[in-house]
Design a protein around this nucleic acid. Sequence first.
DNA 1: GTGTACTGTTACACCAAGTGTAACCAAAGG
DNA 2: CCTTTGGTTACACTTGGTGTAACAGTACAC
Lengths: 211, 211
Amino acid sequence: MSAGGLRELKKSRTRQLIADTANALFRSRGFDEVTVDEIAAAAQVSKKTVFNHFPTKEDLVFYRAEDREAMSLAAVTDRPAGVSILDSFRALCLAQTRLVPGMRRDLDHPRGFFELVSGNPSLQRKMHEVNERIVRVLADALAAEAGAEPGDPLPGIVASTLVGAQRTLYRRLRQRVAAGGPDEEIERAHRADVERVFGLLGAGLGGYPPA
Amino acid sequence: MSAGGLRELKKSRTRQLIADTANALFRSRGFDEVTVDEIAAAAQVSKKTVFNHFPTKEDLVFYRAEDREAMSLAAVTDRPAGVSILDSFRALCLAQTRLVPGMRRDLDHPRGFFELVSGNPSLQRKMHEVNERIVRVLADALAAEAGAEPGDPLPGIVASTLVGAQRTLYRRLRQRVAAGGPDEEIERAHRADVERVFGLLGAGLGGYPPA
DNA sequence: GTGTACTGTTACACCAAGTGTAACCAAAGG
DNA sequence: CCTTTGGTTACACTTGGTGTAACAGTACAC
């Protein structure tokens, strides 16, 4: 990827330029209040070029979604020997505390990424799409590892459960950050959340809700 | 709902007319190949009226999604005393075999509901949206029953797991129907799928995948 | 019955996302 | 050089979706 070549360089430069320009505009004025024409004009590029790089306007916001996908996948495929998938995902969720500084920055901004997405239906849909994709990729990896026969429902269910847990814990962590308090406090609470969730997933859902 | 009144009657009549006309057109020619203008013309109604009843073109396909939502919710709220939520959902999934005749009909048709949706990105997105909505409703019901404090991640995770399982099992059942074979065979295989999935969910995810 | 308030429908003008096409031009490579 | 390749552009076009004001049938009071 990004193998030399002046042509490719220029291409990725304009791509980055477009994405940056677009997101700056979105942040300052909101997603719906910016047209693709404006973005193209601000980036000194034709509208068609914008759509050549990003199939939909929403993709301009989520153009870095592949990172998250790679991390989730790595939690399955690159885990140390002897570590179960559940534990590997637990570790991934615990490590979410590293995202706290970014969350704080986002929260300071009047229209950060989160607020942008949560305030707009089409961006929320795109978000779901991204999540679905992660689930699919993960399910494939699980099926491969388990040597599951095609059509086996288990890998998909495990994948959607894990990703669902991760996402929910992320949201919860974000809530805690928004509520304020010292980092250590937040981290402690988050750790407790993670243990509670993975405790349930490890022990089975049969006993939920507890009497 | 549908409380007398000539006005309401006419309204629901045109609504039904629009939906039926639209779906007939979709089935015969495909979703993207039919414009809303055409639908309006075929239903002898203005384009605006179509959008008055159905906020988006996709809603014309999913206008009966509320039924599924109600059934999933009922599995939680209306279950007999002493039955766990997990077991109630297992029963719901087992009962999916009642959908087999409908699946067969759909499969016979060259462009049934399933093929329509699976062949179109925007319809798939809408499908995800519907599922997300069900998860949210279910999570609220679970939180209410468990007396969970606001922000508790568990209800959401349980809900998304259960709905995910249900959806996956539905897909699996559909595959089996498509593959052919006698009803008893399909039902037996489906029952085995359900037991396998709910066995895993009941016992916990810690041991997945088995060595 | 007659007048009036209500509300679903309509015509119409309009906006913005996204596509198809052919021309264009800079880079790649012999 | 000269040719090919491929990203960019201008431009015309389609289509989903909205806003608005007028219209028409229903409900309801009197």
